[in-house]
């Protein structure tokens, strides 16, 4: 693993040297803020209405705001994650710097882990910036802290998995645009296959919807950590990193 951290630092440096990091952060914060604002406005209105009608059923901040906002923002991830991963390897292959990395005394795995780690750190920073708006909730409401943290943890885990897949896709081409588009299509696919469970309740339908990232993200947004969801995301991470390693190796046979 020697070299992984060096490569990770270099990647972070290039992210922040280009507009990518800032664009991703701004976009995410903006959209998150919008979702957050509309969910909060709706919540405020609904609670005022119920007060005026004399009913005072206890409305839950976590349920009404945090959960829908988290689910919605994970959709933005579909766009952001390919933006983060598309250049990881494609750019190095195009410019020839991949020759420097591969002929340096570091393992392929160290290169891959370093790059993936940088992507995860950037994604974490992006989420943290977005999460700032949630602090307002604590100022005026009394949400439970634990489910919020768990929800963000789920978002991060899902992101880390999709970033690993995106990194693999980036190893297969020299063209960033292709890498980005393919990354988006794959993320989208891993997202929408969940819909199948709504009209196909057979075993096949269940298996397919099991593969969806949504199926496994949902419990986190409810504040529930289920081992099988964690295992799912972690396996996806390993799969992505493993495929990247294979792909780098085959690049050397063909190059």
């Amino acid at each position: 693993m020697r070299g992984a951290w060096t490569i990770c630092q270099k990647e972070l440096h290039s992210y922040f040297a280009s507009p990518v990091a800032y664009a991703v952060m701004a976009l995410y914060a903006l959209i998150f803020g919008f979702f957050f604002y509309s969910a909060t406005a709706f919540f405020v209105e609904a609670s005022m209405q119920s007060q005026m009608m004399g009913r005072s059923f206890p409305m839950n901040v976590n349920e009404m705001i945090i959960r829908p906002v988290l689910m919605n923002t994970s959709v933005i991830g579909l766009f952001l994650i390919p933006m983060i991963t598309m250049r990881l390897f494609a750019e190095e292959k195009r410019s020839g710097t991949i020759e420097l990395l591969i002929t340096s005394p570091v393992t392929d795995l160290a290169i891959i882990v370093g790059k993936w780690l940088a992507a995860v750190l950037l994604y974490t920073a992006v989420i943290l910036v977005a999460a700032l708006s949630v602090i307002f909730l604590f100022a005026w409401g009394q949400p439970d802290v634990k489910p919020v943290l768990i929800g963000f943890f789920g978002l991060l885990l899902q992101g880390a998995a999709l970033l690993a897949i995106g990194a693999f896709i980036s190893t297969t081409t020299k063209n960033q645009i292709i890498a980005g588009t393919a990354g988006f299509v794959v993320s989208l696919l891993l997202w929408v296959i969940e819909w199948i469970s709504q009209f196909d309740t057979s075993t096949t339908g269940k298996v397919i919807s099991y593969l969806s990232v949504v199926t496994h993200l949902e419990p986190f947004t409810k504040g529930v950590v289920d081992l099988k969801d964690v295992v799912f995301f972690v396996s996806l991470i390993f799969l992505g990193l493993f495929l990247s390693a294979r792909s780098l190796e085959s690049l050397r046979w063909r190059a």
Binding site: R2, G3, T6, I7, Q9, K10, H13, S14, A17, S18, S95, G96, T97, I98, E99, L100, L101, S104, P105, V106
Partner: peptide, 20 residues
């Protein structure tokens, strides 16, 4: 094999670390 977004010193530092 150069990274255009790096300064020369940063680049040599990176390669030095990479080469051990």
């Amino acid at each position: 094999p150069l990274y255009p977004e790096m300064e020369v010193g940063e680049y040599l530092d990176f390669v030095g670390k990479l080469k051990g």
